[in-house]
Nucleic acid binder design. Structure first.
Lengths: 274, 274
DNA sequence: CGTGTTATTGACCAACATCAAACTTAGTGG
DNA sequence: CCACTAAGTTTGATGTTGGTCAATAACACG
């Protein structure tokens, strides 16, 4: 699998520690890590590989022994449906572990593709188990990571089920912009999203033509501005309004530092009064 | 909260042990439990309550101290979107823990409603933490439970994004029928789904009128038969075909006993050859 | 029997899909 | 540096799926 065309393995020290750094940054977005945790991550073995654009790095129904970590570029999970069409299920940024659950589920129910050329690292499940076993806060971070993924999927279900084209795309842009900003990948209101309109269509459940027209509509209303794949949100308040966007489902620590990721305090738990 | 109208607390011994039994049955569907695990569950404190039909038992943005366990009836997670419309995100059967992740995420991103009158049990987070702490296989079962939930959400994203009305409803029926059968709640090809056509519409992202017409179409093609809320799959092969249904995303042990839920064996993990 | 909820129907409409062509852009090799 | 190519975007014309509205029919229940 690692030898498939378009992907070449190479693992210089710098690439490995960049991978570690990305993972740490991603986990810190949603959870609290101790210095020890970070040291543990930095000591985790992994293999870095380059994947060309539009490659499949994990295939539906695969049985996995490693998790992939996006180091650079953009990846996405997708399913193919009967008539050959495709639905993109999620987008993944540097630091993401899109198939973390491959550790606990025997087969994977989607494929993972790359968009631009990507740097991807592979971490053996055994190494991740050691990591979780070594630290409760780290185990907690991985668990939270999966739960935030689920939360995002629920928002996408609502997006696809009950929002019109403009709101779907607007909502996606709001989400991507926030996540990229949180990761330090976006500057202010501008962000680079290397998706073609066909990809956007497969993400939002629309046709490519309609995506094009809807983007024009959003531009005409002064909500966004696009130059190629570089998009800028021109009127965030209004875009969030028409897209019905509420970022709480992302559970970003930065968005609500008071709440997120406190270590569990069992003392607080009890039956509610009744 | 427990005192809201339409829900009354009562916890006779029989109801409590029924709740335990339902939870055990549900977890055994996707994971392996030891006898000890079952004993631990059976010793877990919980409060059983009756919820009238169409009640909200958990509200979006709540901060929870207990998880709810569906004991009897049908519950669903949903989100309300801007214009007052509603998207149902998942259906929950007896034994389900729809807000298990309320333990790790500080606020819940959806509401939970009941459909017919339900029996619901509430388990304090502290009790669940004890349970997970007491047994690795149990902790594993809870983790798998969440992951299967995520897997199902991904399938729903694909369903809403890229399938037409007939396939969406057909797919839902295939899923519900399989899950109910696995839980012993359905007999052969018949299952009782206490959803109105309005509810089905909110589940499938369609309008109620179109759900009605699509059901008629499915009946006319001899794929299903409905008498009120009792539905029967008349031609499973064909229904699965037009719905593009592949049950592997449900990760049911019964469907593939060879694979599911083996305890993790780290020895198998290693870098793939390259 | 009423009364409220749910299912069904018909008429009409809108959002979005499809098809096909033209145009733009970014590479790429000479 | 330019022509050539391939990929992506934009446009127009037209079709279809599914939405909306409103009325009627079928139940379910007290």
């Amino acid at each position: 699998m690692l030898d498939s065309p378009g992907r070449s393995a190479f693992t210089p020290v710098a690439a490995v520690s960049q991978a570690h750094a990305r993972l740490i940054r991603q986990l810190e977005l949603i959870a609290f890590l101790t210095e020890d945790d970070k040291a543990h991550i930095a000591a985790t073995p992994l293999q870095v590989a380059s994947a060309a654009a539009s490659r499949e790095i994990v295939r539906q129904h695969d049985r996995l022994t490693t998790c992939c970590l996006i180091v650079d570029g953009l990846a996405y999970r997708y399913k193919s449906v009967a008539d050959g069409r495709r639905q993109i299920l999620s987008l993944h940024y540097p630091g993401d572990l899109p198939d973390l659950h491959g550790m606990d589920l025997e087969r994977i129910d989607y494929s993972i593709g790359t968009l631009p050329a990507c740097q991807v690292a592979f971490i053996p499940h055994a190494a991740l188990r050691l990591l979780s076993g070594a630290s409760p806060t780290l185990a907690n971070a991985f668990r939270r990571y999966e739960l935030v993924d689920g939360s995002t999927l629920r928002e996408w279900v609502a997006n696809l089920g009950r929002r019109d084209a403009a709101a779907r795309i607007g909502h996606l842009f709001c989400e991507v912009s926030l996540k990229m900003r949180a990761l330090g990948l976006a500057d202010g209101e501008a962000f680079r999203l290397p998706l073609t309109q066909v990809d956007l269509a497969d993400t939002t459940g629309l046709s490519a033509v309609h995506v094009n027209r809807t983007l024009q509509y959003l531009r005409a209303r002064g909500l966004i501005e696009s130059h190629g794949q570089l998009h800028t949100i021109r009127n965030r308040a209004e875009l969030e309004r028409i897209s019905d966007f509420d970022p709480s489902y992302l559970h970003l620590r930065t968005a609500r530092p008071d709440l997120a990721a406190r270590p569990a305090s069992p003392a607080e738990d009890s039956f509610p009064a009744c």
